[in-house]
Structures are given as C-alpha cells and as structure tokens.
C-alpha cells in the first residue's frame, strides 16, 4: 500500500550534532512566530469582522476560561477515550483478520473486494446509521472510529504478510515452527514494523474522524466543543479547540513513533 511508507524515514536519520539540535527547535519556532505575527496583523487591520476572525489574545483569553471551567479537560478526556476504545477494538480485530487473510489465498479472494469497498467509503457516511443504531453518547463515535480504522488496518496487515520473504518460512520449517507458533513467532514479528506504520496512519485518520463524529452524536468531546462554539458564535473558543486537537494529534503520533524505536522492531526501518 502506498500510504504505509509515508512515515518511514523520519526516525532513521538521527539528529546527533548539537547544531542540528538547535536548528530542530529554532526553525519551527521561527515559522510559528511568523504565523502568529501574520495572524495578529490580519486581526489588527480588521480585514474580517472580529466575531469571524478572533485575535490571538481573544483565543488566549478563552483558553484560560475553558481550562478554569474544566470543560476543555473534560472534552479532551471524552475524545481520547472514544478514540482509544474504537482504535483498540479495530486493532484487536483488524490485525488478526489481516494475518489470517495474508495466509489464505481463498480468504483473500473472498474478502478483499469487500474490504476495499469499505475502505473507500468515507466513515462519515455511516453517521446516520451510527445515530439510529447507537443513539447519542460514546457508542456512535466509537463505532465511527472503528469503521475508519478497521479496514485500512486489516488490508495493510494482509499485504504486509504477503511480502514476508519465503526464506523465513523455510527457516521456520527447519526449526519445526508451525501452526499457531508460526503466526506468533514468525508471521507477526515479521510484519510488526509495517503494522506499526499502519497503526500510525489509521490513528491519524481516527483522530480526524472523531471531530466530525462528535459534532453530531455527542454532548461533549473536542468536536462537540467546536460545534458549540460555532453555535454561540464564539470562534475564539473554536480556535482554542482546534489548537488542542492538532497538538494532541501530534503527541499521539509521537507516542506511537516511540514504538518504532523498540529494538525488535527497529530492523524494519533500517533497510
């Protein structure tokens, strides 16, 4: 799959020298400050009406309000919970399913067209069903997260299994590894680096979907926060939620990226 290579190189180039380290903070810092300056400048010149273009100061003010009121933390927890549950569920089902598909040609023939169909169907299309089936609360959001990440995960795992070099199976046969331990001792570790890459990709998708899911089916969460801010014409609050969503997404990806540093996974990124 094409998207599985996107993150590959990031951590393979160790930034070791001191100057590289300084630039690592300095360059993004310059971009950030420039962005803030441009933002301030536009809001200062009143190009847009204040209610449609909040100033950095207004956003900062609503940040403190939201934190003090406890809403922001509550919404963060709600969104993280939904994404975690939906994501873990889809990994628990999607990865074994992909491993199984990868080993059985007829299963692949049977399931792949269906999996591809659902992969290309935007999970947001399920919103009406999610609400009718699960009403309001965590469940519809979890369902949508599941629908967003299950299919890409299963497919990526399956195609990773297909690329396992034959020699590993010969070696497994030499040392009498077969049946279930063939899966746990050879197939799974052989595809783990690719699975982790695809976990990062689908976690990114899930984090994007949660915002939309919470706008319709929930009474809290970061997506709901944006929706409510819009309804109250409080775009300063909306921006503050947007910043939190983006930052949290970056942090989650960083955490998942830590997995690629584990020594028994690292090899998959060294080639």
């Amino acid at each position: 799959m094409t998207e599985t290579t996107i993150f590959r190189n990031e951590s393979t180039k160790p930034i070791s020298s001191k100057t590289a380290n300084i630039f690592g903070f300095l360059l993004p810092g310059i971009v950030l400050i420039t962005l803030l300056l441009v933002w301030s400048l536009i809001s200062f010149t009143n190009l847009f009406p204040t209610y449609a273009f909040p100033s950095p100061l207004a956003v900062l003010k609503s940040f403190t309000e939201e934190i003090i009121a406890g809403r922001l933390l509550n919404d963060i927890v709600a969104s993280l919970w939904r994404v975690s549950v939906g994501f873990v569920l889809s990994a628990l089902l999607g990865i074994p399913f992909g491993l199984w598909l990868g080993q059985h040609i007829n299963a692949r023939r049977a399931f792949v067209p269906m999996l591809n169909f659902f992969r290309f169907l935007s999970p947001l299309a399920w919103i009406p069903f999610a609400i009718l089936w699960f009403h309001i609360g965590d469940k519809p959001a979890i369902f949508l997260i599941f629908m967003a990440s299950f299919f890409p995960l299963a497919l990526a795992t399956m195609s990773a299994v297909a690329t396992i070099p034959n020699i590993y199976f010969s070696v497994a046969k030499d040392y009498d590894i077969k049946g279930f331990s063939l899966i746990t001792k050879v197939v799974f570790p052989a595809v783990l680096p690719q699975i982790i890459t695809s976990l990062r990709v689908s976690c990114g998708i899930a984090w994007v979907i949660i915002v939309a899911a919470e706008m319709v089916g929930c009474q809290d969460g970061l997506g709901y926060g944006i929706w409510e801010a819009r309804n109250g014409l409080r775009l300063d609050a909306a921006v503050c939620y947007m910043i939190v969503i983006g930052l949290l997404g970056m942090i989650i990806d960083r955490l998942l990226n830590q997995l690629t540093k584990l020594p028994n996974i690292r090899w998959g990124y060294e080639r």
Partner: peptide
C-alpha cells in the same frame, strides 16, 4: 542460507537458540 536467513527481530542469542 546464502543471506538473510536470520530472523531480524531476534538477537544473536535468540537466533542461535532456535536450534
């Protein structure tokens, strides 16, 4: 094998212990 016969997810000791 000619090359790449070791399991890359196992250490030297773990690979040898397969036998």
């Amino acid at each position: 094998y000619q090359q790449d016969g070791l399991f890359p997810w196992l250490t030297v000791v773990e690979n040898i212990s397969l036998g």
